[in-house]
């Protein structure tokens, strides 16, 4: 299991293939984890407290999920985060869509160039999971909502496809499903015609206790390590430590939306 998922944030979750995890073995892993945590250089902890919550417990506001994008590490031409997102969540990437202008897009790569200095910046753009989300303010049915743990979602059971939220979003993060999907969806990620959708911070993975998202896994697997996902409310999480150490920005900070996604190097 852990071979499939070389993400350091996640190693606390899946230790190398235990046949049956006895309590003794668990304690052993715990001890090994603590030792590994000490052994690593400051700022780089391999073992992170797992956020798996019991499946009968609701999401809690004690946690606020967030993401840090290090644009200085985000590579030109690399699209791995976008591909991983479309694979995990079952949306067709624009390049493969019959109607590219209408194709859904949960995350996209931006390549920017400073016209004066010619400096290039790469970054992924997606739902910024605002603490004060404009999409929630404008939704006439309450379908657009913020979950207790800060993840901004569309409840597709009550979404009527009016697209006010798409207009209200400063980040163009949302899209509407224009076409019948004909049972091609992933069992864990229902989505369908006439509803608005956007990045969910891989809510199905987070709730499973993976503690990470598909894009972060892919970025780490590619060796770029430009993305970190974690709990902003936990002062000891990798993301909180990084946010304390390096300068970061919110995109359109002037809007005062208190974003869950922060960028370094823009």
């Amino acid at each position: 299991m852990s071979e499939m998922n070389p993400n350091p944030v996640n190693t606390g979750q899946h230790e190398p293939a235990p046949t049956v995890e006895s309590p003794q073995r668990r304690r052993l892993i715990g001890a090994a984890g603590a030792a590994a945590g000490l052994a690593i250089a400051p700022g780089v902890m391999l073992i992170e407290v797992a956020h798996g919550r019991p499946e009968d417990q609701p999401a809690s506001s004690a946690v606020r999920w967030g993401m840090l994008v290090d644009a200085t590490k985000c590579a030109t031409g690399c699209n791995d985060c976008v591909t991983a997102c479309s694979t995990e969540n079952g949306w067709t990437p624009i390049g493969e869509s019959a109607h590219p202008k209408q194709a859904p897009q949960w995350i996209r790569k931006l390549e920017l160039q400073d016209p004066l200095t010619q400096m290039e910046t790469n970054l992924p753009m997606m739902c910024q999971h605002c603490a004060e989300p404009p999409c929630v303010d404008v939704c006439p049915t309450g379908a657009s909502f913020k979950r207790a743990d800060g993840i901004v979602l569309v409840n597709r059971h009550t979404c009527i496809g009016c697209r006010y939220c798409m207009m209200a979003c400063p980040y163009k993060a949302r899209s509407l499903v224009h076409e019948q999907l004909n049972d091609t969806q992933k069992a864990d990620v229902p989505r369908g015609i006439g509803c608005v959708e956007s990045c969910t911070f891989c809510v199905q993975k987070v709730d499973r206790g993976d503690g990470t998202t598909a894009c972060v896994e892919a970025c780490t697997a590619s060796g770029h390590n430009a993305l970190v996902f974690g709990d902003l409310n936990d002062p000891d999480s990798e993301i909180s430590r990084k946010l304390r150490e390096i300068p970061t920005k919110q995109v359109r900070a002037d809007l005062n939306l208190n974003l869950g996604v922060r960028y370094h190097g823009i």
């Binding site: 049972d183 969806q185 992933k186 069992a187 864990d188 499973r208």
Partner: peptide
């Protein structure tokens, strides 16, 4: 329901 929900049993690749 099945405009959105898959009608077939299938799981993610991870073997939780």
């Amino acid at each position: 329901c099945f405009e959105c929900h898959s009608t077939k049993p299938q799981g993610p690749m991870t073997m939780h």
